[in-house]
């Protein structure tokens, strides 16, 4: 699991800040001074890029996201074959429905419907043999 951080990496943010600053008219003397500093800045940026490349792992962990949404079960080879008899039939949906009726709140009616619809699926001729 990656480290959970939902932010852009700081070096990148700094560059973007720089890039996004609104343009203003700059006096020529300041402009030339900036130009002199530019080489140094480029060198720094090179080092920064090198740093970025070398810290891919950090960036990977930093840049966003993780995964939530984790509801219940892990699929077997066929997640609708509740009875593990090699087929999906109404018996599988019925098994889930009985568990739900017995108080297993982790099983939703949608899940039962899903298995039942898998049982009656026609399509490719496999029907309920899966």
């Amino acid at each position: 699991m990656a480290k959970e951080r939902d932010n852009l990496p700081d070096p990148l943010l700094a560059r973007l800040r720089q890039a996004g600053t609104p343009q203003r008219s700059i006096p020529a003397e300041i402009d030339s001074a900036i130009l002199q500093d530019a080489h140094a800045a480029i060198a720094r940026r090179r080092r920064m890029r090198l740093f970025l490349r070398s810290s891919v792992g950090l960036a990977a962990a930093a840049c966003v996201l993780l995964v939530v949404g984790l509801w219940s079960f892990m699929p077997g080879r066929n997640s609708n074959d509740i009875n593990h008899d090699g087929r999906t039939t109404i018996a599988d949906a019925f098994t889930l429905a009985r568990k739900r009726a017995a108080g297993d709140n982790t099983i939703t009616q949608e899940r039962i419907d899903q298995v039942a619809y898998a049982a009656v699926h026609l399509d490719d001729g496999r029907g309920a043999t899966r």
């Binding site: 039939t89 109404i90 949906a93 429905a97 039942a116 619809y117 049982a119 009656v120 699926h121 026609l122």
Partner: peptide, 20 residues
Amino acid sequence: PYYDPAALQGDRVIVAAYSI
């Protein structure tokens, strides 16, 4: 009952239901 909504031709359909 449950059935395959894509059972369009009507000459074949699987139907199922359960009750608790």
